[in-house]
Amino acid sequence: MQDTPNTPAQPKRPVRRVTGGVATWCRDQLARYVFLAVAFSATVSLLLIALFILKEGVPFIIKIGLKDFLFASEWDPSVGKFGIYPMIIASLWVTLGAMLIGAPLGVAGAIFLTQFVPRSVMRIIKPMIELLAGIPSVLYGFMGVMVLAPFIRNHFGGPGLSLLAGAIILGIMVLPTVISISVDAINAVPRTYLEGALALGATRWQSVHMVILKAARSGIIASVILAMGRAVGETMAVIMVVGNAVKIPHSALDSVRTLTANIALEMGYATGLHRQALFATGVVLFVVVMILNSLAMAAMKRKAGS
């Protein structure tokens, strides 16, 4: 706030406190408390979600036993067999596969867009990629069914609808997440770091991988972990391309069923114990995703702190 000495002196007036009276004051106080209450809406929603998923799922897990639920490999609700081990393994492999594809491509894209193309090109491509992030996931699944699965069937064998197809589709789907968060992380590195490295005679690539990537590391890691969370939680696209057979995969070409697919496929007709088992599957998923998100948040915090 600067004084403005040029303005002509105002005629002196008696100082009068302008107040709007009791009604205005009440309205202001009311607004304050309404905003405070509303501010907890997201947190309360989160608690409600956790509460109701746990309430439906945890009694089931206690009844069956955590070990038998997580590590038994037979799932046949009609005869009371509820082992989700094959689904856990499938989710794990599909997610890791997706990361093997999505993380290198996405991070490479982020580096290239921020460091090796003119700003004007990046201004066009980054929003384009972010727009593509809005494409409904079912469309990716459909592409997997129509294009990718036949391709895999014809060139590698197997049923086509497979772990591999799921990993590739998810790998593509997480690209926008990885790119846009990594780009932000790289852009947040002070420009002087780059200038310093260049001034020491490093090439652009040397400056990038020795200086900028080191500085942006936690943000990039966060982008990959967040993408993992997306991949683990993705449902509809995965259902369409992985084949959904409940068995432990022996190769990437096998048909598998992920945790999310298990819930969505059977929720429509499940009752009683079966439905509880699906909610228990949801509990496992919820816990996994919360752990991944906390890790990502911790990584982001480190970036902000340094």
Partner: peptide
């Protein structure tokens, strides 16, 4: 509040589906 918001953002849609259903 921020922690709750960030967590909520990361929850997979199928969990929202389960919650909404129950």
């Amino acid at each position: 509040i921020r922690f709750g918001t960030d967590c909520l953002a990361g929850i997979p849609s199928i969990i929202f589906g389960l919650f909404g259903y129950i």
